[in-house]
Amino acid sequence: MENLNLPTYSFKIKSELQRKLIFDSIRKKYVVLTPEEWVRQNFIQYLVTEKGFPASLIAVEKKVDVNLLPQRSDVILYGCNAQPIMIVECKSVKIKITQNVFNQIARYNMKLRVPFLVVSNGLQHYCCQMDYENKSFAFLPEIPLYANIKGF
């Protein structure tokens, strides 16, 4: 798989029926190793290992109804009060981060209303903090540590 702009992590990878599978430590099962899944698994490890997010407070491919249509958010992270605090949208390294990607995560956030949104293609990572009171947002220079946002 492609090198990413993230630390290097070890994963359990196996072949089955001419497909590569990667073990998802959050869902506790092997999933098909697509380019997007490679980014997602690395980004999850980054959040747990480098940013201190508890693995037990992470949901992967969680169903979110948007305009009565079921969608699946890549990663949702929860705070200490069991409320969602961050949505992460992962794309393959070959997908450029465009306004359409931000529109996708914004649709998920219409329902969840989290304080932090993250978009990554494994090479570029963007994090913005929402300000619902002032109807604005601000891009952050880096993804915050869990300890600093867990109470949001």
Rank of each mutant, 00 (worst) to 15 (best):
Glu2Asp: 15
Glu2Tyr: 05
Leu4Ser: 08
Asn5Glu: 13
Asn5Ile: 11
Leu6Thr: 07
Leu6Pro: 05
Pro7Thr: 06
Pro7Trp: 13
Thr8Ile: 13
Thr8Val: 13
Ser10Met: 01
Phe11Arg: 03
Lys12Ile: 05
Lys12Tyr: 10
Ile13Phe: 06
Ile13His: 07
Lys14Ile: 12
Lys14Phe: 03
Glu16Arg: 15
Glu16Asn: 13
Gln18Asn: 14
Arg19Ser: 12
Arg19Tyr: 12
Arg19Met: 13
Leu21Asn: 06
Leu21Gln: 14
Leu21Lys: 14
Ile22Arg: 04
Ser25Cys: 09
Arg27Thr: 11
Arg27Val: 06
Lys28Gly: 00
Lys28Ser: 12
Lys28Val: 03
Lys28Tyr: 03
Tyr30Pro: 09
Val32Pro: 02
Leu33Phe: 09
Thr34Lys: 09
Glu36His: 09
Glu37Phe: 04
Glu37Met: 04
Trp38Tyr: 01
Trp38Phe: 13
Val39Gly: 09
Val39Asn: 12
Arg40Trp: 09
Gln41Met: 06
Asn42Phe: 11
Phe43Arg: 00
Phe43Lys: 03
Ile44Tyr: 05
Ile44Thr: 05
Ile44Lys: 08
Gln45Asn: 14
Tyr46Ala: 09
Leu47Glu: 03
Leu47Asn: 05
Leu47Ile: 10
Val48Asn: 07
Thr49Pro: 00
Thr49Ala: 11
Glu50Asn: 14
Glu50Ile: 15
Lys51His: 08
Lys51Leu: 13
Phe53Cys: 10
Ser56Met: 08
Ser56Asn: 14
Leu57Gln: 14
Ile58Asp: 04
Ala59Phe: 10
Ala59Thr: 07
Val60Lys: 04
Glu61Met: 02
Glu61Tyr: 04
Glu61Asn: 11
Lys63Phe: 01
Asp65Trp: 10
Val66Gly: 02
Leu69Ile: 07
Arg72Trp: 05
Ile76Thr: 07
Tyr78Trp: 09
Gly79Ser: 09
Ala82Trp: 04
Gln83Lys: 15
Gln83Tyr: 02
Ile85Ser: 03
Ile87Gly: 02
Val88His: 01
Val88Trp: 01
Glu89Gly: 07
Cys90Arg: 00
Lys94Ser: 12
Lys94His: 13
Ile95Gly: 03
Ile95Thr: 15
Ile97Gln: 06
Ile97His: 05
Ile97Phe: 01
Thr98Phe: 06
Thr98Pro: 06
Thr98Trp: 03
Gln99Tyr: 08
Asn100Gln: 14
Val101Phe: 02
Asn103Met: 07
Asn103Thr: 11
Gln104Ala: 10
Gln104His: 10
Ile105Met: 04
Ala106Asn: 12
Ala106Lys: 09
Tyr108Phe: 11
Asn109Val: 07
Met110Glu: 12
Lys111Asp: 08
Val118Lys: 06
Ser120Tyr: 11
Ser120Leu: 07
Ser120Thr: 15
Asn121Val: 06
Asn121Leu: 07
Leu123Thr: 07
Leu123Cys: 03
Gln124Cys: 01
His125Tyr: 07
Cys127Asp: 11
Cys128His: 00
Cys128Lys: 14
Gln129Asp: 02
Gln129Asn: 08
Gln129Ala: 08
Met130His: 01
Asp131Lys: 00
Tyr132Gly: 02
Ser136Leu: 02
Ser136Lys: 11
Ala138Lys: 15
Phe139Asp: 08
Leu140Met: 12
Pro141Ile: 14
Pro141Gly: 12
Ile143Phe: 04
Ile143Trp: 08
Pro144His: 10
Leu145Glu: 15
Leu145Phe: 14
Tyr146Cys: 11
Ala147Glu: 15
Ala147Met: 07
Asn148Cys: 04
Lys150Arg: 15
